[in-house]
């Protein structure tokens, strides 16, 4: 073995990733090559040095207690949306107060929705493939063929095609959801390893108050953000499209590109 070959295997040997044969050959070389030996010893020493110096960290006992408390709280409340970090509870409490108003308002304003009406079907989505995806985190999602009932709904009532495959989006599955007595076609995608739901329905005067308006490429989008979720909706040609993402993504509006023929 030449010095060059010995040094090419340097890090793999030190990181204990080299094959037995490679290790043996390297050792034979090092036994009679002082230069390579010195380099190997140095790199091994450097790794030990970094491990020793940087491995210590404060004990996270308080953190563990807090996590266990949150787990207990989450067991009491099956609705996952309410198991967010404490600082978001303020938002949620405010939202709950608004919800009471909303129930009153619902009698007079048709299709008066709150953001959580979309988070619930998103989080409790039972379509095949989604759970597998959530577990595997994008490695090997079992892709569900598109639900014929959803396709029928789309063809009948909505002039839109939902693409199976768009760059950056991986379709996981589809189903029909009833949300406040409105039918929505629900598509779930993986986008940047995040789960994203796209709800497509007829806009019968549906309103979601409390959303921030942003204009992207001349289209008005309305978004609502908390730390661990993001909702964005927009309206086009008598339809409402609501995108919900489990993790905050910067490009949620991109999901518009999976729709065609609007």
């Amino acid at each position: 073995m030449t010095c060059e070959e010995a040094l090419r295997r340097l890090y793999e040997v030190i990181d204990k990733e080299a094959s037995e044969i490679d290790v043996k050959e390297v050792q034979e070389h090092l036994a009679h090559c002082e230069n390579c030996m010195a380099r190997y010893e140095f790199e091994a020493m450097f790794k030990t040095f970094v491990c020793d110096k940087a491995s210590s960290s404060p004990k996270a006992d308080d953190l563990k207690k807090r996590i266990l408390t949150r787990i207990d709280e989450s067991e009491d409340k099956p609705n996952r949306f309410f198991n967010r970090p404490f600082r978001y509870q303020a938002v949620i409490i405010a939202a709950a107060a608004a919800l009471i108003l909303c129930i009153v308002a619902a009698f007079s304003v048709a299709g008066y929705y709150r953001y959580h009406t979309f988070i619930e079907p998103f989080e409790n989505c039972h379509m095949a493939g989604v759970q597998a995806y959530r577990t595997s985190q994008a490695d090997d999602p079992a892709i569900d063929p598109r639900d014929p009932e959803v396709l029928a709904f789309l063809q009948k009532s909505i002039p839109v095609t939902v693409n199976d495959s768009m760059p950056g989006f991986l379709m996981i599955g589809s189903c029909l959801d009833n949300i406040q007595n409105c039918r929505f076609a629900h598509f779930q995608y993986a986008h940047d390893q995040s789960l994203v739901s796209l709800f497509v329905g007829n806009d019968d005067g549906i309103n979601l108050p409390g959303f921030e308006q942003v204009t992207i490429d001349g289209i008005d989008f309305y978004q609502y953000t908390c730390k661990s979720c993001q909702i964005m909706y927009w309206k086009e040609n008598g339809m409402i499209m609501v995108a919900v993402s489990e993790d905050k993504t910067l490009e949620l509006s991109e999901i518009r590109t999976v729709l065609s023929a609007i």
């Binding site: 807090r66 949150r70 970090p85």
Partner: peptide, 12 residues
């Protein structure tokens, strides 16, 4: 701390 909490809650 937030990151670890979110991780464990998701894992749970």
């Amino acid at each position: 701390e937030d990151l670890v909490q979110e991780t464990l809650m998701k894992a749970y």
